[in-house]
Design a protein around this nucleic acid. Structure first.
Lengths: 321, 321
DNA sequence: TTCCCTCCTGCACGTTTGTGCATAGTGCTT
DNA sequence: AAGCACTATGCACAAACGTGCAGGAGGGAA
């Protein structure tokens, strides 16, 4: 039954997308109703059987993408956003497009590092399926905080990635920040932790958002009970502008001497830069400061962001350069 | 103007295919009418800006494809065809799907050999655009016959390929068959011809149909004034079943001792087999004999054919193996 | 300017498509 | 066997879509 359904979906997809027949004609061929064909085609798109790609002609692309691409030397996708949309709607659109952009990049045998946060959560909800073999999803940083182990929140994201790509999921069951750097040192010698760290070292793709300290909505990290008063003061005194996977950096991309990073469970920025494909997803102009820092630190090879933020990025840069 | 149109098309395509917005919503964003958006999207698909692919899960694919794939060890695409369709309609459907299947295989720097005939003509009419750089389309065999130089017929095909892929076109302005083998030898030493032959030697992709001697509709070659009475008798006496690019072969795939081949301008089968990707397009059960010969000769790495012919192929093979 | 040609746009209409809902089927538990 | 939970199907309706057509904008040529 499920076999004949896949076969039907394939057949329907071929006839619809490759031969331009109407669903009605296909329904007659498959001896079923037109509605069923409509649903078959939905399923075919959803499951990645049908892949729709948009190649943007790199050279003639919209001004905005070209400027960002040249300035930062990375692959950028600007998500066009209708005039007035609230933050949540924008995030949803960006996430949808990010999910579809990521799809083609995921291959068999990939080791994919995934961060967590509201951005990643949104992305994970829009992933389209794609079958791969022997791929692994590995969590980039711990998600526990003072109140919860964070397991359910982060693991939902991980699980969705895993099932979209048919990949093994490796959780990272530690807090986002240790209370004492010494504990981290100790844990980092545990074999269970080392297995995760080794996977991280071999990542071929990393996917993350950015946190921004001065955002209108502070990111999860800054408001979710992960940091106490003292920590927040320390961040301010170190001129921190944002973070990626709970590792902090300044506006110029530097991160040396930020003590909180010694207690953070995310990958050192130098290590992150080793990853071949580093996909950064950003939605909302309030992340602009964090984003600038992340770009200064050369943390991303691919950037997906909404139009307003993109415009802000080039405007500002235009003034200072 | 044309710039903003491309930009609009790109933007519209992103919103439509990646964000699932309605054309209405996109029209409002672009400050134009819904109709215009509909047309923009058509243009985007037509021009290859939007690419739709269907990956068939190799292992779970439909029975028919699996059997052919395993038996002949090649990549096969069976084109589903509605119950009763005449030859012309079938050819059109197969050609449409072939054109869309070929698209993704064409890369920059490719040298693409193209044969001619009713099949290739149909395929050429359905190509979707895809911009490549420094690609070349090279004609596989001459098209002249006793009555015409064949220039217009074959060159239309070539030109369509060339403009679909933004490629340079190299015609092969010789007859399909020389009257005397000696003339061929002489011509083959001409530098203008050698340039074409050298290109053929470097082909990375070859695209061709098959001719079948006993077809209900004999192919172009057998009925178009290319061969005289004597030639046809010679073919019959040599047990020829079909041809690819006016090079003939027997049911077992052999071609040695077929004298007509010495006067043919198509590439020797041994040379054709050197090409990495050899795409064979077949429509209509009457080509079954020629097709079997071509497969026996291992001329194809990729086969695109209609469902009825595919079924006939495995049925017959099932009996004899 | 005026005419003519071509290309582009929006409207209006008929067609095609998505989807809520009621129903029928399927498999699992008791 | 009966009950239950869940999924798949077709119907009917509303929404979304493609396209012929008529009008309008541009751009030479006379």
């Amino acid at each position: 039954m499920t076999l004949s359904k896949d076969a039907d979906a394939l057949r329907a997809a071929q006839m619809y997308y490759l031969q331009d027949l109407t669903m009605d004609a296909i329904a007659r061929d498959l001896r079923t109703s037109r509605s069923t064909v409509s649903r078959l085609l939905s399923a075919a798109r959803e499951s990645g059987l049908v892949q729709i790609q948009i190649r943007n002609p790199l050279d003639t692309g919209p001004e905005l993408e070209g400027m960002i691409r040249r300035r930062y030397n990375l692959d950028v996708h600007v998500v066009p956003i209708l005039g007035t949309l609230n933050e949540a709607e924008t995030l949803d659109r960006v996430a949808m497009q990010a999910a579809r952009t990521i799809g083609p990049l995921v291959d068999s045998n990939a080791i994919i590092g995934v961060a967590w946060g509201s951005t990643l959560s949104a992305v994970s909800r829009h992933l389209t399926r794609k079958i791969t073999h022997d791929s692994v999803i590995v969590q980039l940083n711990g998600a526990g905080n003072m109140h919860t182990t964070g397991i359910t929140y982060a693991s939902d994201i991980m699980r969705r990635f895993g099932s979209a790509y048919g990949a093994r999921v490796e959780q990272f069951p530690v807090p986002a920040f240790f209370d004492h750097a010494a504990t981290k040192t100790a844990m980092w010698n545990e074999r269970s932790v080392q297995r995760v760290l080794e996977l991280q070292a071999k990542m071929s793709i990393a996917i993350f958002g950015v946190g921004s300290v001065h955002a209108d909505y502070p990111s999860h990290v800054y408001a979710g009970g992960y940091l106490d008063e003292e920590d927040l003061n320390a961040l301010a005194n170190s001129d921190v502008v944002g973070d990626v996977a709970t590792v902090f950096f300044r506006a110029d991309g530097s991160s040396d001497g930020i003590v909180l990073n010694e207690r953070s469970t995310g990958p050192a920025l130098a290590q992150l830069r080793q990853v071949r494909r580093r996909i950064c997803v950003v939605s909302g102009v309030s992340k602009i400061n964090g984003l600038r820092g992340a770009l200064a630190a050369r943390l991303a090879t691919d950037l997906i962001l909404d139009e307003a933020t993109a415009r802000r990025l080039v405007d500002y840069e235009g003034l200072t350069s």
